[in-house]
Amino acid sequence: MADIAARGPTATVGDSRSSLHKLMQRKSTIAFLMALPLILLVLILVAYPAGYAVYLATLNKGMTRFVGFGNFEFLFGRETFWMVVYQSCLFAITAVIFKAIIGFVVAHFVHNIPSKGQRKWRGMLLVPWVIPPAMSTLAWLWLFDPSYSAINWILAHLGIAAVPWTGEADWARFSVILVNVWIGSPFFMIMYLAALKSVPDQLYEAASIDGATWWQRIWYVTLPMMRNIIAITALFSLIVTFANFDIVRVLTAGGPLNSTHIFGTWAFRVGIESGDIPLGASVSLFMVPILAVAATFILRDITKRGSEV
């Protein structure tokens, strides 16, 4: 558009400059008005609450008095808090790594088979991502039921003792990660499959001619070509997983003994259920550093690609 506007004056000559100026002004005003609902929505319901959370975190429980870093000091002194920090990191990092690996492996298998069958397989394998997480976690809760677990029934037939899926701290940690991996790896699969399709076949042919093994082909051709998409998918997923709520809430509700609480669920427990809003806000603010780091990397990648285009 800019070049039309720039060419305008030379074509029409002279005194139309002021009216052109007015037109320009009008165009940008219209544009601003068109974006206004978006701006208001973001300001009122996202930016303001985000800033307000910081303010809330500095108040006492009754929200009557300013206590500075009092809530944070209180949190640092609590064992549960450090458990939540540990569990959040364990949950997010382990889940993202396994999602990435499973997604990569499955994408490869789908890519390997003749392309007329790919659609069907892809469609089937994406189902866990399509079902609302709260609903599918309910199915897992039932599969993990302490007395009627259908998975334990299979294990019993294989001669393996019953597993306390959600009953013991370490198994519960494993279970929430398992469910998260189940829900999230199809997303990675789709992203990696799209990336695999964009790797030119000639590269693989050249590698085969040079005598590369399948492992070398993956290591020296596929991975370098997919580096960008792997990084950005993992960062996206890290943000989403770190801020997860549904899975932990439905599957264990943080139990047993708070061992599976992550920041989101613990903030809900403290802030809404126990009614200590400032403390809940403080808990949720601990998500910000890791989100900020991930967001910075994503943004850098996007602006870089933007400038390449």
């Binding site: 930016a47 985000a50 989403v240 903030a267």
Partner: peptide, 15 residues
């Protein structure tokens, strides 16, 4: 904004 999760916003919204 898309990267800000709802788990960060529900408490201030509540208030």
């Amino acid at each position: 904004t898309y990267l800000i999760p709802e788990t960060l916003l529900f408490i201030p919204l509540f208030k």
